[in-house]
Every structure is written in structure tokens, then in C-alpha cells.
Measured scan of single mutants.
Amino acid sequence: MQIFVKTATGKTITLEVEPSDTIENVKAKIQDKEGIPPDQQRLAFAGKQLEDGRTLSDYNIQKESTLHLALR
């Protein structure tokens, strides 16, 4: 499925993911596309910060959802 990640600079990244993917996997995909190390990424959805060990389906993130990326 496709999801979107909006960066602090307003850029939107499109990612191909599975509901079973962990947040860690998603951060690795962002690193592949943007070169941002996962340990510098903070992802949020619906106002909640997402934890590495959880999956997209844990957070009820569905196709075409938009996550927000902040850098630490």
C-alpha cells in the first residue's frame, strides 16, 4: 500500500509499505529515499509519536495515510 510522509520542510515522500511493516522498517525506507538516518527520525500520526517496534497496523495506519516526520 502507499503512504505519504510529510517532512518538516513541507516535502511529501511517497512510500510503498505493508500494514505489517514496523515503524523501524518505514524509517529505513525513508533513509533509502532521503538519506536521513533512522535514529534522527521521529514519526507521528494523528498526533501520536510512533514507536520503532510497533507496526503500521498497530496504529491503524491505512493506505494513503500521511505520517509526519520530524528530525531530532
Results as ranks from 00 to 15, higher is better:
55 T>D: 03
39 D>P: 12
21 D>Y: 13
72 R>F: 13
49 Q>E: 11
34 E>Y: 09
24 E>A: 08
27 K>G: 01
23 I>K: 01
27 K>C: 02
11 K>G: 09
69 L>W: 02
46 A>Y: 09
40 Q>W: 09
68 H>F: 07
5 V>K: 00
13 I>M: 10
63 K>L: 10
63 K>Y: 14
42 R>A: 09
61 I>T: 02
20 S>V: 12
71 L>R: 09
4 F>E: 03
69 L>C: 03
56 L>D: 00
45 F>R: 03
59 Y>C: 03
29 K>L: 14
49 Q>S: 13
30 I>D: 00
65 S>D: 11
6 K>Y: 11
24 E>D: 07
12 T>R: 15
46 A>N: 13
37 P>A: 15
43 L>W: 02
62 Q>T: 08
41 Q>F: 11
36 I>W: 10
68 H>E: 07
44 A>C: 05
22 T>G: 04
53 G>R: 07
51 E>Q: 14
21 D>L: 14
55 T>R: 12
37 P>V: 07
13 I>Y: 06
54 R>A: 15
35 G>V: 03
12 T>I: 15
45 F>L: 05
8 A>C: 05
4 F>G: 03
35 G>M: 05
38 P>K: 08
20 S>G: 11
60 N>D: 15
1 M>P: 02
60 N>L: 06
49 Q>R: 10
6 K>Q: 11
24 E>T: 06
12 T>F: 15
44 A>D: 13
59 Y>H: 03
6 K>T: 15
52 D>Y: 05
70 A>C: 05
47 G>L: 04
14 T>W: 09
19 P>G: 08
13 I>L: 14
60 N>H: 12
41 Q>P: 01
63 K>S: 15
58 D>H: 14
32 D>W: 13
39 D>K: 08
68 H>M: 13
7 T>P: 06
11 K>T: 11
13 I>V: 08
16 E>L: 15
64 E>Y: 13
39 D>E: 08
68 H>R: 06
8 A>D: 08
59 Y>K: 01
2 Q>L: 15
23 I>S: 02
35 G>Y: 04
24 E>F: 15
72 R>K: 12
23 I>L: 05
5 V>W: 01
41 Q>R: 02
40 Q>H: 13
48 K>S: 11
38 P>G: 10
43 L>I: 07
6 K>E: 09
27 K>E: 01
14 T>N: 11
13 I>C: 03
69 L>I: 05
57 S>G: 12
72 R>H: 06
30 I>K: 00
29 K>P: 00
9 T>K: 10
2 Q>M: 06
24 E>W: 14
6 K>A: 07
65 S>Y: 14
35 G>H: 06
25 N>W: 10
24 E>N: 12
44 A>R: 07
7 T>H: 13
10 G>I: 04
59 Y>W: 03
26 V>A: 02
7 T>F: 12
70 A>S: 06
39 D>W: 15
63 K>N: 14
34 E>L: 14
26 V>F: 02
39 D>L: 13
18 E>V: 13
54 R>G: 06
57 S>F: 11
32 D>A: 08
35 G>L: 05
6 K>S: 07
60 N>Y: 06
51 E>T: 13
71 L>Y: 09
28 A>V: 09
51 E>K: 08
55 T>P: 06
51 E>G: 04
20 S>Y: 10
60 N>V: 05
33 K>D: 04
18 E>S: 14
55 T>H: 07
53 G>Y: 10
7 T>W: 14
59 Y>G: 01
71 L>V: 14
40 Q>V: 14
65 S>N: 09
43 L>G: 00
26 V>C: 03
50 L>R: 00
5 V>Y: 03
4 F>C: 03
35 G>E: 05
39 D>G: 12
16 E>V: 08
58 D>K: 03
42 R>L: 14
52 D>W: 04
22 T>R: 14
24 E>S: 08
19 P>Y: 15
62 Q>M: 12
